[in-house]
Amino acid sequence: MSEYRWPDEGPGFAERVRHAWTATRQALPVGTRVTGTVVGRRPFGVFLRLPGVPDAIGLAEIVGMPADCELPKIDAVIEGKVIGHAEHNHQVRIGMVGHKDVPE
């Protein structure tokens, strides 16, 4: 498996995310503290599953990570806060404040 992968949340996930977008923005307004699990990695950041909001996808971009932080691995737990909402692709933008990788 490649070091980088897209999140695999099953068939129809993108459509569910699109339909749930209004509820997602209401449930996760800017400033909300969140804890999420890494479900996908790309060179620019990590995609997160956000508990309590099953049809949401979070994105913590590398430019928003602490300077001494490495890109978290799949299944790592991320702590952060909502810094915005990307309307064009229905992603919750997360500013990461810390993470804990799962032991291999």
Rank of each mutant, 00 (worst) to 15 (best):
F44T: 14
A20N: 07
P7E: 11
F44Q: 10
R16T: 11
E79R: 15
R41H: 10
I57W: 01
V63E: 05
L71P: 06
E87F: 02
K73C: 13
V34N: 01
V92D: 04
D75P: 00
G40I: 06
D8H: 12
R41F: 02
I83G: 05
I74K: 07
A56M: 05
N89C: 09
V39T: 15
R93T: 03
G52Q: 13
V38G: 06
I62P: 00
E79C: 01
M65E: 08
M65Q: 14
G98T: 01
P43L: 05
V17Q: 14
E9R: 14
D8K: 10
P11D: 14
A56S: 12
H88S: 13
K73D: 13
E87N: 07
P72H: 06
E79W: 13
P11A: 09
A60L: 09
K100D: 12
D75I: 02
V97S: 14
G45I: 09
I78Q: 08
V39L: 04
G84P: 08
A76N: 04
H99T: 02
V17F: 00
G64W: 07
V17H: 01
V102L: 14
P29N: 08
E87C: 00
G95Q: 09
M96D: 02
F13S: 10
E70P: 00
G52N: 01
V34D: 02
P51I: 01
I57V: 15
K100A: 15
T24W: 03
V39I: 14
I57S: 10
I78C: 08
D75F: 10
